[in-house]
Design a protein around this nucleic acid. Structure first.
Lengths: 118, 118
DNA sequence: TAAATACTGAACCATATGGTTCAGTATGCA
DNA sequence: TGCATACTGAACCATATGGTTCAGTATTTA
């Protein structure tokens, strides 16, 4: 329906929105591990962990390879460049607006309105 | 259950995982708008748009103020600094791994395994 | 060969998400 | 006053998410 969709960013940001999955990325940053290794670390069933890994895999953040009966998980080649680019580009938008908003809030506070930013 | 949780990152990354919401941020970067204005732009019911704005608001990415019958949406003061920091810190992890992975893939390809990275 | 290990898949569950419609309430304007 | 506008809230719907259990299959290893 909408064209500005970016399935890639949808998948990566969704993957990063879960603390366990961010933890998996941290862990894989120290070295590759199996599904079992991850399941132990995060105190979760194998099946549950496999689902998390699949989410990360679909997002391209993790790559897995099965050798024998062990599936080894590695950080994906694709990295976080696209996400970093989006965030950086938009960070500036926020900063630009901040000055303007700041001025509005000061003004409102002087007028005695409820302009208290928490 | 897990301690490494960061509700803040959970909320912001989840908010950013939807193309419509990323579009709303783009749009607000050009200037404040009402819920109606956003609903028109993104061809959605008012109620639907309100939900998206609420998601962005809970994540601290958008601030709204109701004046009269119009609720005006603005980019939040908090910005994307925390998200940028997380991404940047982890980008290095991926890059570090990339060299190692690259070596493994080359090795595998020489061995004739299915090491084809798309 | 038999047992243990490592994963896989199906089924289930509760809750969240992304949308809708419909029925309000509050505000602005003629 | 009275209509149009702008939002709000409840209810509903289909699908996704984050987890589980249970019953496999495939691989090691003793």
């Amino acid at each position: 329906m909408v064209q500005y969709a970016s399935p890639r960013l949808d998948l990566t940001f969704a993957a990063l929105s879960d603390a366990t999955r961010r933890g998996i990325i941290d862990r894989l940053g120290q070295g590759d591990t199996s599904i079992t290794g991850l399941a132990d670390t995060f105190q979760m069933t194998l099946t549950g962990m496999k689902k998390h890994v699949q989410v990360l895999e679909r997002a391209g953040l993790v790559v897995t390879r099965k050798v024998g009966r062990v599936r080894t998980c590695t950080l994906g080649q694709r990295g976080l460049a696209a996400e970093a680019a989006w965030i950086e580009a938009h960070r500036r938008l926020f900063e630009a607006r901040f000055d303007a908003l700041d001025a509005i809030i000061s003004e409102m506070q002087q007028e005695g309105h409820d302009g208290s930013a928490r």
